[in-house]
Design a protein around this nucleic acid. Structure first.
Lengths: 336, 336
DNA sequence: TTAGTTTTTGAAAGGGTTTTCCTCGTCGAG
DNA sequence: CTCGACGAGGAAAACCCTTTCAAAAACTAA
């Protein structure tokens, strides 16, 4: 348990009897090193258990090979499929690109340290404009997921949430439903607000009444969905169809419905949002709106990386169309 | 949109007409700076929108002010309450300690870059010994959560999972149950295996038969719990009590039970593990074993930080007792 | 052998901070 | 007045690497 300091590139060079430069070349796989020196250096590295100092590398290269991910930390949201898929996607892309992901869970008010990252991804579930602005101001490249920010010089990738809301609602209406309700996501965040917007638009266009009591706010948590579903079912005239802004919420709504002795889809149709693979199982497979969260996150990292490396010019803006996935949780409304 | 390079400490010094040293002192709040210079420097910093280069700071200080968090990426596990609470806890502690959290989602086989972090936290849901060994080998301090590793020079904090399994099982048995089943977590990971171990131990001690068909493996996902619960209920002689190794699984098991027209706790008792706040809601509040995930994660960060700073000597080993939280999902078994 | 190429190599100049060690004043005590 | 102490500020070394540029070495062809 000697207090020896970590070996540096110089120690390796000395031991291998070559220059520091040569060692650096071996580390970075520059091909112009003779076989003989290559071996000597590798041996020295192994013997000294040398690993390059990442901070020194970053400093010397002027590049950080790290990307920031900032995400709000409110438990209800953080525990959602949505959030986790995004994290997974970013993590996966970072792994294949050999990038470090520095993950910042923010509570909105605290300052963001741009912490030497090449770029920052905002998984902007809740609005956190000021942080994005600060990052732009500080000159770091930004990429925001599932949130359209046109007035700032940032890139984004996301799904068309208005379209998503429309597709879901349109499907329900086309089945003949006129009493259709929505359990929204957090409506202070763009995604939640826009899905609701799509819902309203479609209802209006199809000349179906949009009743305020059919609009109840959730926060993507199962608990909020339970409360919302109960509220909906206790209405004097309960809806015959419910569009929930996430699969988890849809699943919970289904559970509540069945607890009351009603059937899905016979009595009430349910459509979700996400296409969470686990919503295929359960008593009835969930019809939903698919958004490729994992791929969006991966793509965000790739594009951001390309921007940082100067291979692409920002802003890159990419908005995808969500798709209806029909399974078993929707049917025509029951005849009165 | 000029291509100007980020301002450096030297630019600030020049503009404020002081030395680099003085600027550094202001940045680091060293008190020996005169009021006058202090102000000049602060003005220059503001004017130049200067922020210190984190990598240079880390290099010069020889300290990284970043902690690594490595966690397995298998979707079933990653989406669990368990994993997310741990992430939240680490994130929160990092935020208050002003540390960067570099989050590495591993698939087990890929090498871990120790990436210039001061220490690494292993949320060791699945065994990843080799990575821990590599980190120890590389000389970085390690802290593992919810996993006892006594043969390596690492610290850990966690709950006594055997005790947890015992408490749950004991409670069920004490209510009079003799047909008690378990839906395990991933049994290749220590937590899962130990909860099962506690279950078996208690049954043996209380002289209750441990029947192999009452032990079914889950992976913490709701889906696996559904499969497991169905399997259990279709047994010729179904259990009258089920211990699930996570609240999510317990909740799903409850749903399956109720879908079949059975009641909780009248027909079947259910106990979970975690004390996920959302399991209070639902048709019946869940009795569970509480483990303070968030606090454990926070504590892991604090202790690791203390070790890195040399304020504490490793290994720090802390194992907590999980506690039974009685709510409404358990009762005496039905009379035949 | 020689001149001309090509492949390998190394010295040294950064890269942006922190930190150690001085110096230069100023002030109070004697 | 002088000496010592103290407060404030700066020069330069250190941190560990990458990269540029030029030189050395090894070939190749004539």
């Amino acid at each position: 348990m000697s207090k020896r300091r970590k070996a540096s590139i110089e120690d390796v060079a000395r031991r291998a009897k070559v220059s520091i430069t040569t060692v650096s070349r071996v580390i970075n796989r520059v091909p112009t090193v003779s076989r003989k020196n290559q071996v000597k250096v590798e041996e020295a590295i192994a013997a000294l258990k040398y690993t390059p100092d990442v901070n020194a590398q970053r400093l010397a290269r002027g590049l950080s090979n790290a990307v920031g991910l900032v995400m709000p930390g409110y438990p209800g949201i953080f525990h959602s499929f949505y959030a986790i898929e995004l994290i997974r996607g970013v993590g996966h892309a970072c792994e294949t690109l050999r990038l470090d992901m520095v993950f910042h869970i923010t509570n909105g008010y605290n300052p963001l340290s741009t912490a030497g990252v090449g770029g920052i991804i905002f998984a902007d579930i809740i609005e956190n404009r000021s942080q994005i602005e600060a990052a732009v101001e500080a000159g770091v490249s930004c990429m925001v997921i599932n949130n359209i920010v046109d007035d700032l010089d940032v890139s984004y990738i996301g799904v068309d949430n208005i379209a998503g809301g429309r597709v879901a609602t349109d499907y329900l209406v086309s089945l003949g439903h006129t009493k259709v309700a929505i359990i929204t996501g957090n409506i202070r965040a763009q995604a939640g607000a826009q899905r609701l917007e799509g819902f309203k638009q479609t209802l209006k266009e199809k000349e179906v009444a949009v009743r305020p009591e059919y609009i109840v706010e959730g926060d993507y948590s199962r608990r909020s969905a339970r409360l919302a579903a109960e509220q909906l079912l206790e209405l004097p005239e309960p809806p015959t169809a419910i569009f929930a802004a996430s699969d988890d919420m849809a699943l919970e709504a289904m559970t509540v419905i069945m607890e009351r002795g009603l059937r899905v889809p016979d009595d009430i149709s349910v459509v979700g949002f996400d296409d969470n693979p686990s919503s295929i199982y359960g008593p009835v497979a969930l019809t939903t709106i698919r958004q490729p969260l994992f791929q969006m996150a991966e793509s965000a990292v790739r594009n951001l990386n390309a921007i940082v490396l100067g291979k692409k010019k920002p802003p890159i803006r990419n908005i995808l169309s969500p798709q209806l996935v029909v399974r078993e949780s929707c049917a025509r409304p029951p005849i009165q």
